[in-house]
Simulated assay, not measured.
Amino acid sequence: MNLVSVNWLKNELSNPNLIILDASPLSNKANLTAEFLGEKIKGARIFDSEKVFVDTESNIPNMFPSEEKFTKECQQLGINKNSIIVVYDNLGIYLSPRVWWMFKTMGHTNVAVLDGGLSAYKNAGLPCASYKQEENLLKGNFEADFNIENIKDSNFVLENIASKKEVVIDARGNGRFTGKLPEPRVNMQSGHIPNAINLPFSNVLDNGKMKPKSQLKSIFNELDLANNNLVFSCGSGVTACIILLASDLVLDNKKSLYDGSWVEWGAGTKFPVEKES
């Protein structure tokens, strides 16, 4: 259960173990525009991965929170060990896959992304409400169990350039990957991690929904990944999780996220950068 449809969610709305999380971002670097602002699925709890579920002590944006912090904040949202979690956002599929991977990494496997997000749900005529946090939530008993293999750091990625043990897949647009277009963040190099391959996140989506598995299989077959372990990267660890989710729907390869992504790698001259002429 990694990706669910609006119809699936509709049939589960009465399930007492179901928890719906709204992971809509306040802004995005992909210049996407939400169809519906100021609304959320009725009963959804707001999952703030930009200010709450994040390592606030890191100078790198969007880094995963600690196991302890994740546990505490999930309990505050009323999440339990037996919760069935469905996460969505208001951009179709954008930030929700990162939250999905966060839960997977923290040991909670019963979690899925809502295909098409808020737009698909609202356009199906299902009940929505104003965008605010649910009140009087009972404290949950969720306990995180961090799987360190799901996250890679810059040291691992640097060593992997020489060892080539794992394949790094970059979800940024081709212009940023090749270095022909500037990065949207200031004081950031353009280009890519040496030996990385490019799969823009938009390639696996169709109008805010994930492409069918048959098309996803063709996309990943073209990358000739064989049985290699895969490390996903992007600008700041968000859109990397979109292609990570897409790959998880059709590939058995072991997968991980380079959480620092380009916002760490492309800052300054500490790490090697490749560009294409």
Results as ranks from 00 to 15, higher is better:
Ser119Glu: 13
Phe156Glu: 12
Tyr131Asp: 08
Gly117Asp: 05
Ile79Gly: 03
Pro127Tyr: 07
Leu118Asn: 00
Cys128Glu: 10
Gly173Arg: 01
Tyr88Ser: 07
Asn141Asp: 15
Ala171Trp: 06
Ala124Thr: 13
Leu91Val: 12
Ser163Pro: 12
Glu135Asn: 12
Val111Trp: 06
Asn136Trp: 05
Glu135Ala: 10
Cys74Glu: 03
Asn82Val: 01
Ser154Ala: 12
Ile151Pro: 07
Gln75Val: 12
Ala171Arg: 04
Ile148Cys: 13
Ser154Glu: 13
Asn160Glu: 10
Leu137Trp: 06
Gln133Thr: 13
Ser119Asn: 10
Leu126Val: 10
Asn123Pro: 07
Gly125Arg: 05
His108Leu: 05
Ala124Asn: 10
Glu134Lys: 05
Glu135Asp: 14
Glu166Val: 09
Lys152Pro: 08
Cys74Phe: 12
Glu149Thr: 14
Leu118His: 03
Ile93Phe: 01
Asn160Arg: 00
Leu77Lys: 00
Val167Arg: 01
Ile148Arg: 15
Thr71Trp: 01
Pro127Cys: 10
Asn90His: 06
Lys104Pro: 15
Phe142Ser: 06
Asn141Ile: 08
Asn141Lys: 03
Ala124Tyr: 06
Val113Trp: 02
Ser119Asp: 12
Gln76Pro: 12
Tyr94Ala: 01
Gly92Tyr: 00
Val113Thr: 02
Ile169Gly: 01
Asn150Asp: 06
Asn80Thr: 06
Val87Asp: 03
Ile161Lys: 00
Leu137Lys: 01
Tyr131His: 10
Val86Arg: 00
Lys132Thr: 14
Gly117Leu: 06
Ile148Thr: 15
Lys81Asp: 14
Ala112Arg: 00
